[in-house]
């Protein structure tokens, strides 16, 4: 229903995987919960290739932080990233369905989430 994703343009593979629909703002506010989430991501994402970096934007009170709710994982290669994407999409994380997309590495490095 709604948006027709299937007809949208083809997905082009990059080294940066963007994971959506996994975390809520409230979970990220809590330091312990944030650390736990980061560990869960490191552990799972490391299974599919070499992880170069991970970014999990966290909310700041009264500031509009871009990308809160998204998780970005930078892999050493496009093929590692694609492998991770195929394995992780549609899995569940804390009872939520994991949605994936590839992210522009330039934007990622400029922290344009």
């Amino acid at each position: 229903p709604g948006l027709n994703i299937a007809e949208a343009s083809k997905v082009s593979v990059t080294e940066v995987l963007c994971l959506l629909n996994m975390v809520t703002e409230e979970e990220l506010v809590d330091d312990e919960e944030y650390e736990d989430i980061l560990e869960d991501i490191k552990e799972e994402c490391g299974k599919y290739g070499t992880v170069r970096s991970i970014e999990i934007p966290r909310p700041i009170p009264n500031v509009e932080v871009p990308g809160v709710g998204k998780i970005f994982v930078e892999y050493a290669s496009k093929s590692d990233c694609q492998k991770a994407q195929q394995q992780l999409t549609g899995r569940k994380f804390a009872h939520r369905v994991v949605v994936t997309t590839f992210y522009d590495p330039d934007k990622y490095h400029r922290r344009q989430f």
Binding site: A8, G90, V97, V98, T100, T101, D104
Partner: peptide, 15 residues
Amino acid sequence: RAFIPGMPTTIPTNM
């Protein structure tokens, strides 16, 4: 994995 008909879990970059 979760499958929701009509709602793929891989989305395009340019949304």
